[in-house]
Design a protein around this nucleic acid. Structure first.
Lengths: 214, 214
DNA sequence: GTCTATAATCCGATAGAC
DNA sequence: GTCTATCGGATTATAGAC
């Protein structure tokens, strides 16, 4: 009755609120472990509960349902991707930054394939997460956009190129590379480094000989 | 006893063999319908059986298990993709052919998103299908490789470019475009035509100004 | 060849005891 | 808060009658 039950626990709240937060965090951590180890389809309430040392019913005290857990995992994954890109994003030279961002993106996909799959290859998640208020996804994309903005400012881009379209194209290349590597690894034998180097080289300099107007 | 029971029915066999083949075909057709309408995860033996007018148990007389049906669907899907690319592959001019192939590929992804997902985005299928004896997948990729082979023969490529790598890069762009369109459509608002035009323009001519050696 | 019936599991989610 | 027990459903696959 006297307990204030407003939204999320007011940072550093009572012991009770802290315990509740700990339980939430432990559940999410085990859920993440399951996705990483066994894939998203293995994420069931029973499995999460067992891993976290709870009964399945207890999970519903901390999360509305299974989807809520999956959603939080996806959002955390998107933040993890942003973190993975942060260091590369500090590179001063735009072209080197572009390469560093590409390598970091590819490394993330290789290090956490199931997280990547959850974020970008699972139906229903990315569609809402990216378009909505998800700051992490937008910030990650902005890192790429910044490169082409800087290139444009430096006058290094051909005339008539749209920065947004260039950033999108670059992201498309990165995603195509990472996702094909996940599903068709047997066919895509080249390393991400080589694939990225080829893609970047062609995107930036073009595959055709310059001495002719097509 | 006297019935020869060797492997697949010897084309145009007995009435009995034909009937059996018809049943197989009907089951596969209904399975395809389910994937197209409700997605791959909705492909269950019960649903297939109901749609085909059989009991679930009867399916096991024609297919070893659910995975066998999914595998055949995937192989048929890969052949459908090859068919969808065939017309564009006849374009004489290599650059126009590249654009036509890209548009046809994107159109296939849009027309049969669930087939595309089954082939290239579902874990476990593409990995084996492309690397193995699947002629359709290899033939489809060869259509792309042929373009760059022709460009090389015509002396239109920059020096030092590897044809295989170029083809791979182009496929990566196409797959990145189609698959992101499927999962992040809310974020990827541009049309496939525009996306492809931008990607092709940059891949072929480069984003950087030509008048400087980086 | 096709059916009904069923085994053996798994799932998400809830009720109610403590 | 956490548990046990359970509901109501789903799944693949098989056994045995016809």
């Amino acid at each position: 009755m006297s307990e204030v039950k407003s939204s999320p626990p007011p940072a550093g709240g009572s012991t009770r609120a802290r315990r509740k937060e700990d339980a939430r965090a432990r559940i999410l951590a085990e859920a993440r472990r399951i996705v990483l180890d066994q894939g998203f389809e293995a994420l069931t309430m029973r499995r999460i509960a067992e891993a976290a040392g709870y009964s399945a019913a207890a999970l519903y005290l901390h999360f509305e349902n299974r989807e809520a857990i999956a959603r939080e995992l996806g959002e955390a994954g998107m933040r993890a991707l942003l973190d993975a890109l942060a260091e590369a994003g500090k590179t001063v030279d735009p072209l080197q930054r572009l390469k560093a961002l590409g390598l970091a993106y590819a490394a993330f996909g290789r290090a956490e394939p199931e997280t990547y799959r959850l974020i970008f290859m699972e139906p229903g998640f990315a569609a809402t997460a990216l378009g909505g208020k998800d700051a992490a996804g937008a910030a990650a994309f902005a890192l790429i956009g910044g490169v082409f903005q800087d290139l444009a400012t430096a006058g290094r881009l051909r005339d008539g190129l749209d920065i947004e379209s260039l950033a999108l194209t670059f992201w498309i290349v990165l995603h195509g590379m990472v996702s094909l590597k996940l599903t068709c690894s047997a066919f895509l034998v080249a390393s991400e480094e080589d694939l990225l180097a080829t893609a970047l080289d062609n995107l930036l300099h073009g595959a055709l000989r310059p001495n002719r107007e097509p």
